[in-house]
Design a protein around this nucleic acid. Sequence first.
DNA 1: ACCCGTTTTAATCAATTGTTTAAATCATTT
DNA 2: AAATGATTTAAACAATTGATTAAAACGGGT
Lengths: 203, 203
Amino acid sequence: MSEELSTELKILEAAKKVFLAKGFSGCTTREIAHEAGENVALVNYYFRSKAALFDQVFQSAIEELMYILVDIFKSDISLKEKIAEFIDREYAFISSFPGLPMFILSELNREDGAQLKNKQMFEMVANSGVFDQMKEAQESGEMIEIDLYGITVLLMSNCHYPFISKNFVSSLLGVADEHFETLMDAHKIHVKNMILTYLFPIK
Amino acid sequence: MSEELSTELKILEAAKKVFLAKGFSGCTTREIAHEAGENVALVNYYFRSKAALFDQVFQSAIEELMYILVDIFKSDISLKEKIAEFIDREYAFISSFPGLPMFILSELNREDGAQLKNKQMFEMVANSGVFDQMKEAQESGEMIEIDLYGITVLLMSNCHYPFISKNFVSSLLGVADEHFETLMDAHKIHVKNMILTYLFPIK
DNA sequence: ACCCGTTTTAATCAATTGTTTAAATCATTT
DNA sequence: AAATGATTTAAACAATTGATTAAAACGGGT
């Protein structure tokens, strides 16, 4: 027997779904209320405004995405293992929420749009000792010379973009929806091999 | 002395600028008209509707992005050179229009949004003989086994995403705007090395 | 049964939206 | 200069937007 959600939670869940799919400018409060099966006025009653509700959804989306990073990077494994693990977990996670990367990136691009507030997450990565690990691996020659920006964009590019570009590439190459998951699995293998052998070349 | 643009062109250029920056749902016809310095009614007078104007902007954006691909792939150089050249030209082009990838991807994601109409471009790539070149390079063992999807997503990921994620990564790592171009130049080197050595490993 | 704070509802608000209209202006031809 | 068609303008249209209101319904405590 399914537990009934509170009205506030129903609206929040509906907002997540609708904002993720359509973005802030692409939907209305009425649409969110209808998705939640509640009265329009309740959106403002519980969340003050559309913008405030959006902000709550956005910040939690960011945190969900960053959590994987923090969780892996503070663990007690080698840098190479961390990166391999990150790619695996990132693909698995985004497969469950394919709209998440596009949502975050496009809303960060919107004028007067979402802002990264919670730098706490980044600081947790910084304090995980992973940067020392990087420096060490580079000094020993195990890892190539590459800065934090390069490694970040390299990983994010190859983990996020395949999902972001689904509609584009699929319609360009004529890929059916049911084949997408298989393609993504195959692509992850390529990405892992490519990035790991590039960052950690066999001497 | 600057040549005066026709009203129709002024509106079209303004529409490109505004749509690229804010997307279809993120702007109004009045905003476009104001950017063009023209009366609101002229938008509909020349382009029938906001949607029709958008469609025109979107299709031309797609064509601009695809033109590089066609132009390089039909040229008479080796596959490896084509890929290297593609990365160079893609970075140079997108540096001039940094909003283009995000615009196309996010509008293709929008419900009832933009659709890829012009498959002519893809057919020109298909007819360029580049697929035969791929098959040949793989049979000779010069290139690794990877399908068209894999190679497409690999290239697009590493050429588009760095620009798409500018706001995200910049604010995450605290990168100032004036350093972005330098970072991007450095990143292109990594991307080129990484992709080329992965696809064409030295035996 | 009554009270009282919380939640929910339907109705309404002013502002903004894309689009249309009808009149005014312009440019070209006769 | 008169006439014609194309262009431009200001005004208005109905529909939709985020948000607010006041009254109704609900629920726990006495």
